[in-house]
């Protein structure tokens, strides 16, 4: 009997830790917690789309206010599209569409998903009205108000998904419950500025290029901070599929921002930069999602930090 699976696991590919992996005990190497059964395209996809829509609404409002009308309209449409797609993937993940109605039975601040449902319920129509007004050129007043409302709710739509992920027992998510909202804000900004670079005219994209730079800097800084916070659980951010995605995210986001800054004035440069930023943002969300799943499936990441905490407390 290989009994209780004490340590002795196969080494995984990727970066080797400097210190040897801590010895730990588990029940036949089985996970302690259950990984979410959420499908990555649905939920990581939703994280990405929510960020794109939310930060997009802010950029749209800024463009709207500063007279960058083409960009503003394009972003309003992209935000509406993104939030509609969000709702679609969320309902898809429930299995039966009719079940979504139960989300609106209660208003529950302890449940980020309940808050998110109501938030989307408010944001979605605002984004819709903003886009409709911009495209049809009708009710500019209502359109303006909706644009403002979407811009105020948008940042929350972009960051609350970090709370949604962090408010779980998943070590790679809960461990960074302080940092994750900032990472998601940065990633959302990267996505929205990327979208602005792709769909907006080059002579309107200066704020987006600026925002891309900010987003890339914040993304890199927060990722570092998050990995430091996670301790040994940071392995899940560095190794395997999650590691590959998050490394790609850093390269794409930074590359996109630099390309935007240097070549954003040209159409080709702007589109390349924008696509890189969008891809980078998506990689961040899918990477964080994959890290969470990996950390839930290996008992090491549940047991070792808790055991260390106990040993420290009793020392």
């Amino acid at each position: 009997m290989s009994t209780t699976g004490r340590a002795g696991r196969r080494r995984r590919r990727g970066e080797q830790p400097v210190v040897p992996r801590a010895d730990f005990e588990s029940y036949y190497g089985r996970p302690v917690i259950k990984a979410p059964s959420w499908a990555a395209p649905d939920i990581a996809g939703y994280f990405f789309l929510g960020g794109l829509a939310g930060a997009g609404s802010v950029l749209a409002a800024g463009a709207h206010l500063t007279g960058r009308t083409t960009t503003a309209t394009a972003l309003k449409v992209s935000s509406l599209a993104a939030v509609s797609l969000s709702a679609a993937v969320l309902i898809h993940d429930l299995g039966k569409p009719s079940r979504f109605a139960n989300m609106l039975r209660v208003f529950k601040p302890t449940s980020p998903m309940s808050m998110g449902s109501w938030l989307l319920g408010a944001y979605g129509p605002a984004a819709g009205a903003a886009a409709a007004s911009a495209v049809t050129d009708r009710s500019p007043r209502l359109g303006g108000a909706a644009t403002g409302a979407a811009a105020l709710l948008g940042p929350v739509v972009a960051t609350y998904t970090a709370v949604l992920a962090a408010d779980t027992a998943v070590p790679a998510w809960h461990g960074v419950h302080r940092e994750l909202p900032y990472l998601f804000a940065a990633s959302a900004t990267a996505a929205a500025s990327g979208m602005a670079l792709v769909v907006g005219p080059t002579d309107e994209n200066a704020p987006a290029r600026c925002a891309a730079g900010l987003a890339a800097l914040a993304d890199a800084a927060v990722t570092k901070a998050a990995e430091r916070r996670l301790g040994m659980v940071a392995e899940t951010w560095r190794e395997g599929r999650a590691g590959a995605l998050l490394r790609a995210a850093q390269v794409l986001t930074a590359g996109g921002a630099v390309t935007g800054a240097l070549f954003g004035g040209r159409r080709g440069g702007a589109v390349a930069s924008g696509l890189a930023l969008l891809a980078g943002s998506a990689c961040t969300r899918f990477g964080v999602f994959a890290a969470g799943i990996a950390s839930a499936k290996d008992p090491r990441y549940t047991v070792v930090p808790q055991r260390e905490r106990l040993d420290e407390a009793s020392a």
Binding site: G54, A55, V58, L59, G62, L65, T66, T110, P112, A151, L152, P155, V156, A158, T159, Y160, A162, V163, A166, D167, H174, H177, R178, E179, L180, P181, Y182, F184, A185, A188, T189, P207, A208, C210, A211, L214, A218
Partner: peptide
């Protein structure tokens, strides 16, 4: 830790708003 999470999410949302406002 949920209160702390909401707080950070709020701050992050404001940062997003502020950052983009600064860009404009």
């Amino acid at each position: 830790d949920l209160p702390a999470m909401w707080q950070h999410a709020g701050t992050a949302a404001l940062s997003l708003l502020g950052g983009l406002a600064a860009c404009f």
